[in-house]
């Protein structure tokens, strides 16, 4: 097990590389294909913690406050994700509304909360079973969060409505963009593997 920790396999070419201790700011690349394997960043736990502290606030605003308001010949309506899911659920579109509710609200909410918890645990150098379970949950759930696709869908819908509706962006829209950016940074740029590596370093 200890020897295995010294080896890292390139995700691109599956070439085994020896792991080396890095200085902050340095990156390790594969000796065969040159792909970035891991990097050392300063205070990554604090970065995740602070990003998610603000991220959770923006998430609540994005989900419960209107994202856009529309006005069609005097009829007014706004888009709130949770309310919209409930509305379509009550109209009989059960599967679609449940799927949207889970992939745009529930799973991102759980993911953000678990990232937040893992950052706290890592800050306090805790590496017990709970942290491991949290990391497994994040690993599995992150693939079912579709915030980015939903955002593009909102933009496409706006273009479709543009010709016959008066559209006003609301506070939820800005909060949604900020939360989306935070989650994108955490999931795609930092990545779950970084959390797993931090968990291992604490062992």
């Amino acid at each position: 097990m200890k020897n295995l920790k010294k080896i890292i396999i390139c995700p691109e070419c599956e070439n085994p590389n020896l792991k080396k201790e890095l200085k902050p700011g340095e990156i390790a690349i594969c000796s065969h294909c040159g792909k970035t394997l891991y990097k050392k960043e300063n205070l990554i736990e604090i970065k995740i913690f602070s990003l998610l502290l603000s991220g959770i606030v923006f998430f609540l605003i994005a989900m419960f406050y209107p994202i856009i308001n529309i006005d069609i010949i005097g009829y007014k309506e706004n888009l709130k994700i949770v309310e919209a899911s409930l509305f379509l659920f009550n109209k009989g579109y059960i599967f679609i509304s449940l799927f949207v509710f889970m992939s745009v609200f529930l799973f991102p909410a759980i993911c953000a909360f678990l990232y937040f918890l893992s950052a706290i645990f890592l800050l306090f150098r805790y590496n017990g079973v709970i942290l491991k379970k949290i990391l497994i949950l994040i690993t599995v759930l992150k693939d079912w969060c579709f915030l980015d696709i939903f955002f593009i869908a909102i933009l496409v819908s706006l273009i479709k409505m543009f010709s016959y509706a008066y559209i006003v962006f609301d506070i939820g829209f800005i909060a949604y963009i900020i939360f989306l950016s935070i989650m994108f940074y955490l999931v795609k740029i930092i990545g779950v593997e970084t959390l797993w590596n931090l968990y291992e370093e604490n062992m």
Partner: peptide, 27 residues
């Protein structure tokens, strides 16, 4: 793969937004 969900989400947004008496979009 997941980007094909775009159409479903567009239908969801339009259906949730435009449901007035004389103007409506129904999935």
């Amino acid at each position: 793969g997941p980007w094909s969900l775009l159409d479903v989400f567009v239908v969801f947004v339009l259906g949730a937004l435009i449901h007035f008496r004389y103007v409506s979009i129904i999935p």
